[in-house]
Design a protein around this nucleic acid. Structure first.
Lengths: 251, 251
DNA sequence: CGATAGCCTTGACGCAGATCAATCCGATGC
DNA sequence: GCATCGGATTGATCTGCGTCAAGGCTATCG
């Protein structure tokens, strides 16, 4: 057993880059064997596009993070109205330590790979290894900020603004993963169906479709096929989104 | 200097019952002097109804929790549209450790007392004293759940359902503080103006007013004055709220 | 090749909630 | 007493988005 000492090293103990554990790379305080214990319980799971990972209310005995693909968290009312409340892109975390059952439907909207830990051992590690909890707190605070931005969108934005916002959000997340902006012009592949977009935005899918057509007609975006979108002027899109958050492409 | 040992004791080191520190009561691992260091930086602040505590974007060098009164977090778009994104009742926490400036307008909607800590020392304590971070993680996860419930409300509920939901939410929070339910019949004092309610719900204040009148007309609620509400049958209110979450009065 | 299925688009129409405007009610001050 | 002011109510009208319905595009399969 050895202590890792001193300066932040470019060193990732856990190969999967998306886990909260990743943060160890800049933590000089944790024992290797604590992470090793966690490693033991780690496993990967794959899901097909459209597959439901857990239903709201069902037992959920793992936590984990998305390695590749897209998943969504969705709430459903008795009469079937659905609202997406979480969009999980690669590196996002799912699962609440300390909760037995899922609070939302978790659905893979594309083919998906997740990196999972069984919940019990994960909770133990969290208690023993402060920086894991600290990392998780950071991530949760980020989620909360995103949720609040999302609330503004749901409560006050028009359909057109909602669509523009969603495209911008995905473009930004996309770019922060695989840097590809070339001054103003940005390209995105929407990873969501029109229906999924409508569940994200609190609209119907017809309205989503109409507004996308409108943005296209007005030259704010160009479309190839159904999902491939070219944004000639990102600042213009941001303007359409009615966003007061700083308009830069990379925040 | 002494270690607190062994079993969870009914013991609150910090008199203010609302701090994240409160959790120490059931933590056997922290040094008293760590908390004492924190105590040193603790101070109380009072605000008058209507006073803005910080503006979005301004420097915010403290964190803290509400002791008494109500505060709100609100986002504003350039053209003035406003959406509330946080409702802070007694015991709720404000402020993100690690962030320099406020991300939202924080406004006292009633006379308010807050228990504050300067941010820097608080962050230090958080690093040194794991259970404080753990408690904060729990609280943040609760906030996130609340935000997601709120998103369902904003995205999919009708005006009538939104009003019923808000009344139920406040009644529940109220009751969990000062137990006062008497089987079915519940009494609440709304701590918000119609305008604040409209900012919470993503509606106009006229619609709020109309829907409250409608619920009154239909016997779902009774009203004395402007703000004092009697709910003859809480289950009926829950039904009006379209809530799938378990309908019990105390969750 | 045509048939089926999933996803998307477009049109016609109706309604929930926004907007604009007038009035009311209770508290506070002179 | 009356005037003022902030909050709340109520009415009349307008409109953005939902609803219902028809049809198009592309991929997959027989």
């Amino acid at each position: 057993m050895q202590k890792t000492t001193a300066a932040p090293a470019k060193f990732t103990h856990v190969q999967c880059g998306s886990c909260p554990i990743r943060h160890r790379a800049v933590c000089a305080r944790c024992d290797t064997d604590e992470l090793e214990r966690l490693e033991e319980t780690k496993y990967y799971r794959s899901f097909e596009a459209g597959q439901t990972i857990v239903w709201s209310g069902d037992r959920m005995d793992f936590v984990g993070s998305v390695v590749s693909g897209i998943a969504t968290l969705t709430q459903t009312m008795e009469d079937g109205r659905r609202q997406m409340v979480g969009l999980l892109l690669p590196s996002d975390f799912v699962g609440r330590p300390g909760r037995e059952t899922a609070a939302y439907d978790v659905v893979a909207t594309t083919d998906l790979v997740m990196c999972c830990f069984r919940k019990k051992p994960f909770e133990t590690i969290m208690l023993d290894t402060p920086h894991v909890g600290q990392r998780l707190l950071e991530m949760t605070l980020d989620e909360l900020d995103a949720a609040r931005e999302w609330m503004l969108l749901l409560g006050r934005k028009t359909a057109r603004e909602k669509i523009a916002s969603l495209i911008a959000i995905i473009a930004r997340r996309d770019a922060s993963l695989k840097l590809q902006s070339s001054e103003g012009r940005v390209v995105v592949d929407l990873p969501l169906t029109r229906e999924a977009m409508s569940e994200y935005l609190g609209l119907t899918l017809e309205t989503v479709s109409r507004q996308i057509s409108a943005l296209k007609r007005d030259g704010v975006i160009q479309i190839e096929g159904k999902r491939h979108i070219i944004i000639p002027d990102f600042d213009l899109l941001i303007e359409e989104a009615g966003d007061d958050s700083d308009g830069g492409f990379l925040v």
